[in-house]
Amino acid sequence: MKTSLLPAAAALLLAGTGCGSRSAAPAPEPIRLIVETDMGNDIDDALAFDLIYKAMDDGRVDLLAIGNHKLSPTATDYIDILNTWYGYPDIPLAQSPTPVLNDHAPDYTAAVCAMTREDGSPAFARSKTPEQIEDPVTLYRRTLAAQPDCSVTVLSLGFATELAKLLDSPADDISPLTGRELVARKVKTLSIMAGSYGEKQRAEFNVVNDIPAMRKLFAEWDTPIVQNPFELGKQVMYPGAAIENDFGWAKLHPVVEGYKNYHKMPYDRASWDLLSVVYLLHPEYFTESEPGTVAVDDKGFTNFTPGPDGRHRWLTATPEQLTRLRDCIVRTTTRAPKHTEL
């Protein structure tokens, strides 16, 4: 599928500053990133990881650690497939010991992990043994302790289960700081897909699946939080036509196969998690709210109270920004990655 760029977006691309571009201009220091995901609950997690790997290809991101809290026998295996296929097999990977069950949608990771070639061998290579899959809180503590102060960005693409446990973690052999102290010292910002601020506000999926954890996260996470709410992702639909038409360069693609196994093709899907990634790379594609404070109520609704001392903001986008976001996402995901054999 050919996508049309707005003149402003085209100018950015020609200038080497557009999303997914490969410019010879000096690159900023890579974003030191920790990602928490519920891979398998929705295909947007997989597409979001594609954006992350492409940003790594471009030297924009240093992916330090990945944690998964989806209750699934194949979700973490699928992340290992992604890391391996995109050329980053050594990224530390963790699986929650207390994952959250959600069985309302097909788990596309099972289908992809079960795929085989004609000779019966696995369709996609893995890199991790079961013994190399870590505990998330331990991995996050070790990762944060090893980084400079105020240098790490955390990206939350699912529930707050493990991040809340990180906040509650005590001092240990890894660090004399508690989890909350480690976050306050080492983390620069948290980009999170969560919540709802539409005309008909809802108890959003990532919040309602672990309300106590999300409440703790917003109350005790002592760094800026940028919230990407439900309504924004619905305004940037990922086109199923791109999956059908624009990946001919790949014989087998784990994200494409995941997309095809999530719902009956063809279908478009909201870009919820993808936007939290794009925000880190291109905040100018969004409109930020005034500062304030988010509180999570007992039913899973997020309530924003403006205030100059608040650490929280939430995102919207103008019609022009929405077009730029869609063009950026489609252009980047349909681009061949740098490291994998195609």
Score class of each variant (00 low, 15 high):
residue 97 P to Q: 15
residue 159 F to P: 02
residue 130 P to M: 11
residue 3 T to H: 10
residue 150 C to G: 10
residue 248 G to Q: 12
residue 307 G to K: 05
residue 277 V to E: 01
residue 232 L to E: 01
residue 340 T to A: 12
residue 225 I to V: 15
residue 15 A to L: 15
residue 29 E to R: 10
residue 138 T to C: 05
residue 193 M to V: 08
residue 252 L to S: 10
residue 153 T to I: 14
residue 173 D to A: 14
residue 260 K to I: 00
residue 228 N to T: 15
residue 321 Q to W: 12
residue 19 C to P: 02
residue 132 Q to D: 12
residue 295 A to L: 06
residue 90 D to I: 03
residue 279 Y to N: 08
residue 120 G to S: 12
residue 220 E to P: 00
residue 334 T to I: 14
residue 297 D to P: 01
residue 250 A to C: 11
residue 92 P to A: 14
residue 127 S to A: 15
residue 59 G to T: 08
residue 174 I to P: 02
residue 147 Q to R: 07
residue 158 G to Q: 07
residue 309 D to H: 06
residue 229 P to S: 02
residue 233 G to F: 05
residue 212 P to C: 08
residue 200 K to Q: 11
residue 283 P to Q: 07
residue 312 H to T: 00
residue 254 P to H: 07
residue 231 E to M: 00
residue 246 D to H: 08
residue 152 V to I: 13
residue 33 L to W: 04
residue 338 K to D: 09
residue 135 D to S: 07
residue 342 L to T: 13
residue 103 D to Y: 09
residue 214 M to V: 07
residue 312 H to M: 03
residue 335 R to P: 03
residue 309 D to T: 14
residue 276 S to Y: 01
residue 130 P to N: 11
residue 67 G to W: 02
residue 303 N to M: 01
residue 235 Q to C: 07
residue 208 V to K: 10
residue 13 L to G: 06
residue 328 C to H: 06
residue 83 N to M: 09
residue 246 D to G: 13
residue 90 D to N: 13
residue 42 D to S: 13
residue 215 R to L: 01
residue 91 I to R: 01
residue 94 A to V: 06
residue 16 G to L: 12
residue 106 P to K: 05
residue 12 L to W: 08
residue 78 Y to C: 03
residue 286 F to K: 03
residue 333 T to K: 04
residue 111 A to T: 09
residue 341 E to C: 07
residue 96 S to F: 06
residue 258 G to L: 02
residue 288 E to F: 00
residue 24 A to Q: 10
residue 158 G to W: 04
residue 200 K to T: 14
residue 70 K to H: 11
residue 30 P to W: 02
residue 52 I to G: 02
residue 288 E to L: 14
residue 232 L to N: 04
residue 104 H to R: 11
residue 73 P to C: 08
residue 2 K to M: 10
residue 333 T to N: 12
residue 44 D to S: 14
residue 187 V to K: 04
residue 54 K to C: 00
residue 246 D to N: 14
residue 263 H to P: 03
residue 159 F to M: 11
residue 215 R to F: 01
residue 11 A to D: 09
residue 199 E to G: 01
residue 336 A to E: 14
residue 85 W to T: 01
residue 55 A to P: 05
residue 92 P to W: 02
residue 189 T to H: 10
residue 305 T to D: 11
residue 177 L to Q: 07
